[in-house]
Computed example of a mutant assay.
Amino acid sequence: MTTLETGFLRVRSWLRDHPLAFDGALAVAVLAAMIAGSFTDPNAPNGPSFGTRTPEAASVVLMVLGAAVLVLRRRNPMAVLAATGALAIVEFVLVDPPAPVVMSAVIALYTVAATTDRPTTWRVGLLTMSVLAASAMLFGASPWYSQENLGVFAWTGMAGAAGDAVRSRRAFVDAIRERAERAERTREEEARRRVAEERLRIARDLHDVVAHHIALVNV
Rank of each mutant, 00 (worst) to 15 (best):
T2M: 11
E5C: 13
F8V: 04
R12K: 09
L15Q: 10
L15C: 09
R16K: 15
R16C: 02
D17V: 03
D17M: 13
L20Y: 06
D23P: 07
D23K: 08
V28I: 13
A29P: 14
L31P: 06
A36D: 14
G37V: 13
P45H: 06
G47W: 04
F50S: 10
T54G: 02
E56K: 07
A57I: 10
A58L: 15
A58K: 05
S59T: 08
V60E: 07
V80P: 04
I89L: 05
V90I: 15
F92Y: 04
L94Q: 05
V95W: 07
V95N: 11
P97S: 04
V102L: 08
V102G: 03
A105S: 12
T111G: 13
T121R: 03
W122M: 13
R123H: 14
R123F: 15
G125T: 08
L127A: 15
S130C: 12
V131A: 09
L132P: 05
L132Y: 00
A136M: 12
G140H: 02
S142F: 13
W144R: 03
Y145F: 13
S146H: 01
L150A: 10
V152K: 00
G160W: 07
A162N: 10
D164N: 12
A171L: 14
V173L: 15
A175I: 02
E178Q: 09
A180Y: 02
R185L: 12
R187D: 10
E188K: 04
E190C: 03
R194Y: 12
R194S: 08
A196F: 05
R199K: 11
I202A: 14
I202R: 10
A203V: 11
V210Q: 06
A211Y: 00
H213D: 14
